[in-house]
Design a protein around this nucleic acid. Structure first.
Lengths: 213, 213
DNA sequence: CCAGGAATTCATCTACCGTTGAGTTCAACA
DNA sequence: TGTTGAACTCAACGGTAGATGAATTCCTGG
């Protein structure tokens, strides 16, 4: 029991890729099968390792799911990128960036999160917390919206994006699933624009912060 | 072996409510836990019967799920009711009827379907078929849309409604979850209106069927 | 060279799942 | 009243899930 406890001995991790390949297999399998349908055994097989190794690295299936969802879901840059620039095109810009991410390799993680978020109850509350803390609290001040109108505006826009994600990437209903992304940008952009900074007559009595149109 | 085979003998069903209480418990449990998370044992307990009785009535879990989803999901009347009337307000009218159904007791079945639709794969394809056959093929002629624009317009509107259902009834994110329905109608109605019969510049080069605006 | 500890695997435990089939109760007919 | 057949229960089977802990390999620091 040397008291130089700060120094660790023993084998340094020879294959740090193994942990990452487990995470990759987990993301893929969660996206395909959902949380319940994705078994640890299948994830381990997909990564070419023993199921017990998954537990060795991540403990429980819940923690594995959280670890798999952590990295690829940082909407901060998306919000920042969409918020910077002309306020009159923030909706279109946001939809374009959103589709670029989901059409890319990161989309699998999004599908996994969406699939699993509605499966069990604890993942649903997790997803709700994620939306509130990571999106609402970040986007409201970033877009200069008041605390009165802001949350409803953001959630309205978010509901439209969730709907697009569901229809295009999860349910895969045609012609939405294989439409060019710019078609969707042109169609949905104005709606998001109106939700975020446009007039919502009948929702708010005309107040100050938006005479964009 | 009398050849008057049309006549049945024996005990007439004494408790036809049992079957319905199983269906009710199934809808509730499916809505809470999703398809995988809802066990037949839990459904039976919720209905106060033996698990084997569920199989006696419905055969397999799949058939029970289909039976539980069948009745409350007939969008025909919703589509008909929304399509009849002034074309300039079809979007608002549709959103209003949609929310009326989901805010009512039938909403639990909708949540169950949505939760389960993304869980397993066969339920996803089932949901896709449901959307295509029950909504697309019905709504496109009913709204007088062409085969070129119609499907995309309908799926765009459907994506917005799915997003609202997810945000308001599944994820339950505030302030959308507890907002008065008329607020959502006022906010979302114009978007659906534009998707269905409005101009979509950049999506279709202006053709004939919509100078509603 | 040697000892320690991380990386990895094997066999196994416990629990719950959907499903089955035999058995029991009991109202309605002949 | 005796028979029928539906409503309903009990006990169990086979399968698979997540999780555990001991055993094995093998790099690495001393």
């Amino acid at each position: 029991m040397g008291f130089l406890m700060a120094r660790r001995t023993g084998r340094r991790p020879g294959n740090p890729d193994t942990r990452e390949s487990i995470l990759a297999s987990a993301r893929e399998t969660f996206a395909e099968k959902g949380y319940d349908g994705a078994s640890i055994r299948a994830i381990a097989t997909g990564a070419g390792v023993d199921p017990a190794l998954v537990h060795h690295y991540f403990g429980t299936k819940d923690k594995l799911f959280l670890a798999a969802m952590r990295a690829p879901l940082d909407p901060a840059e998306l919000i920042d990128a969409a918020a910077d620039g002309d306020r009159a095109e923030v909706g279109t810009r946001f939809v374009r960036l959103f589709l670029r991410i989901w059409d890319g390799p990161g989309g699998a993680a999004g599908v996994a999160l969406l699939r699993s978020a509605v499966g069990a109850e604890w993942t649903t509350t997790l997803f709700r917390e994620f939306v509130v803390t990571q999106i609402l609290r970040r986007a409201v001040p970033k877009l200069g919206l008041g605390d009165e109108q802001g949350p409803l505006r953001i959630t309205l826009a978010a509901s439209q994006m969730v709907g697009i994600a569901m229809a295009r990437y999860v349910i895969k209903v045609e012609p939405l699933a294989s439409a060019p992304s710019e078609v969707i940008v042109a169609a949905v952009g104005p709606s998001v624009q109106r939700y975020l900074v446009g007039d919502l007559p009948g929702v708010f009595d005309q107040s100050e912060p938006s005479r964009v149109r």
